[in-house]
């Protein structure tokens, strides 16, 4: 369950935390776009430097990020094997028993590794520094221009925020049921195949039952407070951009400029 800690909101009071969520999402999107420009390793160096500064501004330790990327090692090594078998361009690095490793295989894998790492850090930066509720407010605002073509932006934001809201609840619930069943002798690690199936069943069935119950109760509670779908509603929390957003957007846009110039 500890892996879920990756990207979980950490309540701090930093520069990044104080940014307007709308601009934070936009900034993240621009950073992502710049990661996908073929700007070579120099370009990635520039982006990495930028991201590293952003990490400093958010007061996240690099150690935490590295720890959360451990599961990627398996995927990357798998990718490296595939690449080294398939890619036959570039110069030959070495040749053992008829197997040739080409330089492009190594470079391609490195490329993907750098891209993935940057993407993960960028998204983590956003989710770590933004409350889920603010995030959905931002998404709602950013989607609102599409209302004209019939996109239910508020409903989408509401669905996202409810889903996000219930993730910790479901984790708690899962832990609780696991413990309750452990008290009844369930052992997920030991036992025969049939026993393991039963163990998983004893976890999933109660989880489903309580999720449906919760959903129904939530719907009732929302209706009782007068929630009507597609009704116009005002908002308690008003988003206001500050000078920080200008600074951040300025930084991100000039980074994009540099990247485009490098990839020309």
């Amino acid at each position: 369950m500890n892996n879920i800690a990756l990207g979980r909101y950490i309540p701090l009071n930093t520069f990044t935390h104080k940014l307007d969520p709308r601009f934070k999402i936009l900034g993240m999107l621009i950073l992502m776009v710049s990661v996908f420009f073929p700007s070579g390793f120099i370009g990635y160096g520039v982006i990495a430097a930028f991201v590293f500064i952003a990490l400093l501004f958010t007061k996240i330790s690099l150690k935490m990020i590295l720890k959360s990327m451990k599961p990627m090692i398996f995927m990357l090594s798998f990718l490296f094997v595939i690449n080294s078998l398939v890619i036959r361009t570039g110069y030959v690095l070495f040749n053992i028993y008829g197997f040739t490793l080409y330089s492009d295989a190594v470079f391609q894998t490195l490329y993907i590794m750098v891209r993935l790492t940057l993407m993960i850090i960028i998204t983590t930066l956003l989710t770590v520094s933004t409350k889920p509720m603010d995030l959905t407010l931002g998404i709602e605002d950013l989607l609102s221009p599409f209302k004209r073509i019939g996109l239910p932006s508020h409903e989408i934001a509401m669905m996202i925020s409810i889903a996000l809201r219930f993730i910790p609840t479901l984790i708690d619930e899962t832990n609780r049921i696991m413990k309750a069943q452990a008290s009844r002798g369930v052992d997920l690690k030991e036992g025969s195949f049939k026993e393991k199936i039963m163990a998983i069943l004893s976890l999933i069935v109660p989880l489903f039952v309580s999720s449906f119950q919760r959903a129904e109760e939530l719907a009732d509670a929302m209706e009782a407070r007068g929630y009507v779908v597609a009704q116009h509603r005002t908002r308690y929390k008003q988003l206001k951009p500050t000078y920080r957003d200008t600074v951040m957007m300025g930084g991100v846009l000039s980074l994009l400029g540099v990247i485009i110039w490098l990839s020309l």
């Binding site: 309750a180 008290s183 004893s202 109660p206």
Partner: peptide, 13 residues
């Protein structure tokens, strides 16, 4: 040591 949790009815399956 038998432990009965709070609201144990959720563990029925």
């Amino acid at each position: 040591v038998g432990l009965v949790f709070q609201f144990p009815e959720y563990q029925l399956f």
